[in-house]
Amino acid sequence: MLHRRAFCAAAAAGAALAIAPGVRTQPRLEKNRVVIAVAGKASFYYLPLTLSEQLGYFRAEGLDVEVVDHAAGARALQALLSGSADICSGAFEHTLNLQAGGQFFPCFVLQGRAPQVAMGTSTKGFAAYQAVPDLRGRRVGVSAVGSATHMMASLVAARGGLRPADVQYVGVGSSAGALSALRTGQVDAMSNSEPVMTMLEQKGDVKLIADCRTLRGTAEVFGGPMPAACLYASEDFLRRAPNTAQAVANAVVHSLKWLQTAGPGDLIKTLPESHLLGDRALYLAAFDKVRESIALDGLVPPEGPRTALAAMTTFDASFRPERIELDRLYTNDFAQRAKERYKA
């Protein structure tokens, strides 16, 4: 027979485990503090990452996450390569560029299943536009030369039979400068992200000719599903810190699940005021345009990497597709476990 004191202690311990079963099964994190590099944190492109912070999902996983916002995607990537960041939140095509250079940094959580970019022609300065070949000799504004907005515009042009030299691409940023460039006639068309495109649409400044904020529009431009925003890290990090990577994946997939049922009021209450563009109605209108593009469960669709590879090959004549191992561009292992945990 158990001694009374020992019995009570055992019962108390059993009750504690019954109340909090996760305590018994929670894996030990290899590192609690994680630095995630990003560029343009306040954009819709990285909304799941911001929500993971604001909703406390990183903390719930035992993580102390610092999201460092950089001025450009190249700088965020450099932070990852230099070791000052553990993970990068960026475009899926970064994984291709890295691998082409002999570096393996797979995506392990997908945040966006479409690029969130739209393209339109100026209703004032290019009213004569009828079809893509009309872009020959015209100036197309993009957020930056070499960016995802540039890639989309070049693919639209290529599908219309134009060569890269047929169109002049002009970097105009992704804020007030982009709006001014189109409205003052510095460019004849615009390929840009949100909220720029919604602002131009609301004022009737553009006539849309391609829309990669939707799955259908993305398939029309890219020929299939195009993975967009994602979390990626070195293969070495994922091997050395699998529990930490899993905890990060859990948090982000949890936020993706939250987004599936969140209403406009939920977003307004959750996000920092600085993210709302100074105009809540505009923010919600832009969010409505991109909502379909946000990933549902963090998983990369099987055909997605092949679509991305074809796009890169078309966009960059110097890109060497034969160097790419598609199965090393991503892993769905972490997102799948997170999906099962949260039934996303």
Rank of each mutant, 00 (worst) to 15 (best):
C8P: 00
A18W: 09
V23L: 08
R24I: 04
R28T: 12
R28F: 02
K31F: 03
K31V: 09
R33Q: 05
R33K: 12
I36D: 02
K41Y: 05
L47R: 13
P48N: 13
L51S: 04
S52M: 05
E61H: 05
D64W: 03
G73Y: 06
L77G: 12
A79M: 03
L80I: 10
S84V: 13
D86T: 14
S89I: 03
G90P: 01
F92A: 12
T95P: 01
F104R: 14
F108S: 12
R113C: 14
Q116W: 02
T121Y: 08
A127L: 04
A128L: 03
Q130F: 00
R136L: 07
V140K: 00
V140S: 02
G141K: 00
A148G: 10
T149H: 04
M152I: 10
A157P: 02
A157I: 03
G160L: 01
P164D: 11
A165K: 07
Q168E: 15
V170T: 02
V170H: 00
G171S: 15
G171I: 07
V172F: 00
G173A: 07
S174E: 10
A181V: 05
T184M: 02
S193F: 02
M197P: 03
T198K: 10
G204E: 07
K207W: 08
G224W: 00
A229C: 06
C230S: 10
C230E: 08
E235Q: 14
F237K: 04
R239Q: 13
N243I: 03
T244A: 01
Q246S: 01
A247Q: 04
N250Y: 14
V252E: 11
V253L: 04
H254T: 08
S255I: 06
L259W: 06
L259N: 11
G263C: 02
P264Y: 11
D266P: 00
L276M: 11
G278M: 07
R280E: 15
L282C: 05
L296P: 05
L296I: 14
E303H: 12
A308W: 02
E322R: 10
E322N: 10
E322W: 02
E325M: 03
E325D: 14
L326Y: 02
N332K: 10
K339Y: 03
K343F: 07
